[in-house]
Design a protein around this nucleic acid. Sequence first.
DNA 1: ACGTAACCACACCGGTCTGTATACTCGCAG
DNA 2: CTGCGAGTATACAGACCGGTGTGGTTACGT
Lengths: 185, 185
Amino acid sequence: MTTLTPAGEKLLAAASTLFYRRGIRAVGVDLIAETAGTTKKTLYDRFGSKDALVALYLERRAAYWQGFLLDRMAGRTLVEVFDVLALWLADQDRGCAFVNAYAEIGGTDHPAEPVIRAEKEWMRAYLVDLARAAGLPDRLGIELHLLYEGATVMATAGGVPEAPALAKAAAERAVSACGSAPTSG
Amino acid sequence: MTTLTPAGEKLLAAASTLFYRRGIRAVGVDLIAETAGTTKKTLYDRFGSKDALVALYLERRAAYWQGFLLDRMAGRTLVEVFDVLALWLADQDRGCAFVNAYAEIGGTDHPAEPVIRAEKEWMRAYLVDLARAAGLPDRLGIELHLLYEGATVMATAGGVPEAPALAKAAAERAVSACGSAPTSG
DNA sequence: ACGTAACCACACCGGTCTGTATACTCGCAG
DNA sequence: CTGCGAGTATACAGACCGGTGTGGTTACGT
């Protein structure tokens, strides 16, 4: 939650929208500065490099998504994460920003790579915690995470908008299978 | 299975490796031509544009993966697709080429977009057919597809190499839950 | 012998890429 | 009133981008 100057915030906001919608390499720093209504000089004064700006974009986005999820999940049950996902994907039509970023920078030593890993690990831990709180085994949280990632991919790249609903149905079956045989794993 | 000239094949082979390892936008046509030991002129004579080359790269890769899968699945059972996936990912360490390509070109009118959709649909249909042949409901095949996509993401962007094995365990539970209550859906 | 497909070598085009430099204005705190 | 951080505007560097054009060299089928 780094504090930025006003021009810095405008740059980060413009970069976030552009990176998500068009991809990282497809967006140049000139376009970011122009969209933000400021200059490239200010961009480099604030962020140092495009790579650092990319890392910050992903950090902010992770925080935003996590806030969105925790807010919408208040008072809801485990499998309803897929309802929240469907809600999220209705606006975010380019899929998972972290998977997309990994597609462009994966395998390099880009500063954003640990941010990507951390976001996936956060989501995994969140679902495992939720399962545990419901008296269900950890492996069920992990399974739900796989369904969650699969649903995100299929809803976007796969062109199957009902994927989150399908994943929810699968998750419900997995949960009830656990309930009827709780110590079988 | 378009027939290409020898130089065309060399170009497509070089492009395939480079696109997969580094991403599409990160690789220029000059580098492709140089890596193939030929010239940019020949590239444009054979393929017309970089976009067309990208589409052909994905078509060939889909055919290669499908051949690999069908070959390794001979005589195996439904859930063993995850073993084949683990085998595949041992070599292909940059994840799903189609998800990665969608991250870079999704939302545009790029000629490769239908190729991406078709590959996801093929895999979905394959798993549904396999489920059906085993006397299991279609929805189980769809569920396994979600687990498959989730496992691919987590094994690469998520940095969890055991993801296919976790997905296989989840798939086995889903299958046995079906067996014990076959007409509950 | 002739046409043609395939290929190579190389130069060129306008544009864009990340990143740096120069020079100036403004508001504010010591 | 002075010094500084933040901002603007603009020009530049050197490389790379996708794509085109010219000219010359093989090899092959008719």
